[in-house]
Amino acid sequence: MNLKNNIIFEKTNLSKYGSFENITFNLIDNIMYSDFSFKTRLENEENIMTQETFQNLFESIKLTGLLNPVYLLEKSKDNYVIISGWRRLLALRELYKIENRKIFYQKAIILRNDTPLEVLENISIDENTKRKDLSLLELSYKFNRLSSVKGITIEECLKKFNIGKSQFHAIKKAIDFHPIIKETMLESVGPIKADLLNKILEKLLLLHPQKEAYSLLNAYSKKTREDLKNTLKSLDNTLNQKTNFFEIKKNNNITILKIRENLTDEDHFKIEVFFKDLLKK
């Protein structure tokens, strides 16, 4: 199969960097599985291989073959790094343990070592997002890695992955969201709404016991983004009122303390003791 016949390669001009090759036992055996240069998943290999979805993938490849090609970078002669297709290649490695003569024709796209890094990163993200293999949390990990390790600017990321600025920032922040947001809400509500819920949860935990805050959060997760923005403003106002319950004014040698609370006689006594101790009088 000629690379020029593939629509992806026509758009990205990849034909000048590599070619389609057969997948064989020798190719699978020469992949450097410990090289994570382009790995997008947060899971380790052992966790992936014990998942039911991985077992289903293994059975699917065994019975019907490999439907989509994998991308490899030829690091040196007969040494390959995975660009895209980690799970499929792990499944193939397991398959070749029992069927080492099997051939998957024209299912490996081998790119030369001089392929630009930008091209390789594009493939790594583009292939996984289009196939929906990446979770939002994994995308967050990838975006942070691109920004810190690869030195790619925000503008370059927006252009490269064709996403809006607010969506990019929300996805990038997702890796630092509260665990309950990451684990139970992020994938279902999306990154922008999850970002709002994360900010709301921070306020709720300052105002309520943890269990109550979580319960309120669950109710808020069903609201629209506009409703959540209004909720956030309301919580900010509530917190401002609670944190501004006293005021201190200074005028030359006079300091005035105003407390906006209905205090008991006991409270008054404690304040008097505190200030006497503070002023040593």
Rank of each mutant, 00 (worst) to 15 (best):
N144D: 10
K249H: 14
Y96M: 04
I8V: 14
F36E: 14
S234N: 15
S221N: 15
K165A: 07
I256R: 13
F177R: 04
V149C: 08
F9L: 05
A219M: 15
Y220K: 06
F143Q: 05
S15I: 03
L239F: 08
E94P: 09
H169C: 11
R131W: 08
D29Y: 13
T255D: 13
S60A: 04
L158F: 00
H169V: 13
S166H: 12
K193G: 06
M49R: 14
N30H: 11
L120N: 06
H169I: 15
L14Q: 00
E99H: 06
T238W: 00
E10A: 10
L3E: 07
N244P: 10
R88W: 05
D265I: 00
F54I: 01
I82V: 08
K130S: 12
N68G: 07
L95F: 02
R260H: 15
T264Q: 15
G151I: 07
Q241H: 08
N230P: 07
L204M: 11
S166P: 11
I152L: 10
I152S: 11
K4A: 06
K182G: 13
R260C: 12
E46V: 00
K199N: 09
K276E: 14
S234E: 15
A219R: 14
G190E: 14
L217V: 02
E45I: 09
T115N: 14
F20Q: 10
A194P: 06
L207K: 10
E45N: 03
E121V: 03
G190Q: 11
L136Q: 09
F275D: 09
N244F: 07
I254C: 03
K75I: 01
N244W: 09
T24F: 04
S166I: 06
A91E: 07
E46C: 04
D195Y: 12
L201N: 02
N198H: 13
N26G: 11
K270G: 02
N244A: 09
Y71F: 11
N253L: 05
L197D: 04
Y17E: 12
E10P: 01
D133Q: 02
N5Q: 12
E127A: 12
G18R: 15
K173F: 08
N30R: 00
I110S: 05
L139C: 11
K250N: 14
Q167G: 07
I125D: 12
K182D: 13
I109D: 01
L136N: 03
K250D: 13
F275P: 10
S37I: 04
I256K: 14
T50S: 14
N5V: 07
R87S: 12
N230S: 08
K173H: 02
L217P: 04
K193N: 09
L137G: 13
D29V: 05
L201T: 08
I61P: 06
V81Y: 06
I28A: 07
L146V: 00
V81M: 02
L197S: 03
I98A: 03
R112F: 06
L90I: 01
F20A: 09
L235D: 08
K242T: 13
S124Y: 06
N44M: 05
E187R: 10
S140N: 07
I28Y: 09
K97W: 02
Y105V: 11
Y214V: 07
F58M: 00
L216P: 12
L196T: 05
Y33I: 02
D277R: 06
S37Q: 13
S148D: 14
K280D: 14
